[in-house]
Nucleic acid binder design. Sequence first.
DNA 1: ATCGGTACCTGCACGC
DNA 2: TGCGTGCAGGTACCGA
Length: 264
Amino acid sequence: MPELPEVETVVRSLARLKGRRIVSAEFTCLRVLRGGDPDHMAASLAGRKITGIERYGKFILASLDSGAYLMIHLGMTGKLLLGGPAGKHTHAVLTLDRGVLLYDDSRQFGCIEYHERFPARVARLGPEPLRIAFEDFAAGLRGRKTRIKALLLNQMFLRGIGNIYADEALFRAGIHPEASASKIRGERAHRLHGAIVEVLTEAIEAGGSSISDYVDAQGRKGFFQFSHRVYQRTGEPCVACGSKVRRVLVAQRSSHFCPKCQKR
DNA sequence: ATCGGTACCTGCACGC
DNA sequence: TGCGTGCAGGTACCGA
């Protein structure tokens, strides 16, 4: 479900958790704990105060007054919900001194992990796409043999871009998803960098894209799906030239593009 | 070191 | 109504 704009929207909607104390925690799905021990996690979290909620790419880190972290990744279908009844796919319940936080994830591709220190997995991620300078972005493209779409999805290259915003940024930049990354230089690299910043910024302002069931922690949908120009528009006319939007697989992911507007 | 393909899980839309 | 197929915002892991 969630890429950078959706996770950013969720984190903003969780701002009120700062300063709250965790009374108790319950974990009911081993898979999303990724090897973590549910009893140890519950014992470590009980009584701790949440001192901050931050986003790193698509990861959410809640820092605790003990110096430890609760790391959450929403995968494809993960949701963090403030209140509301637990459902069939509710895997974690944090009872707070005021309110309750639920983790719900039907496909179980997401995770909740407890870390005594800043998680190495987050530390290894590439830079934030909204902060990287153009010169660093262009340098990152050099010598990369892979196709640009695959590189944009690589979280070690940039953190936070997923399938929707990779396709939308490439369309806005006029670059074919199968273009070789190393061949994107100069003006084209500049356009791509600008398109990434632009589309992510607009999507955050719209509260993200609600394709099927994405909602923020207060159950609100985003509306950037109405502004998609190519994503899931296969066969429909290009908004710029009227050609039919096409779909190809790149790195096993659906990639939507205009065959006339986007060049290799 | 990099890259591409596969696996993981559930739900939904579709054609028969 | 049910069944098979393909598809879906994600990453990890394997071999080449």
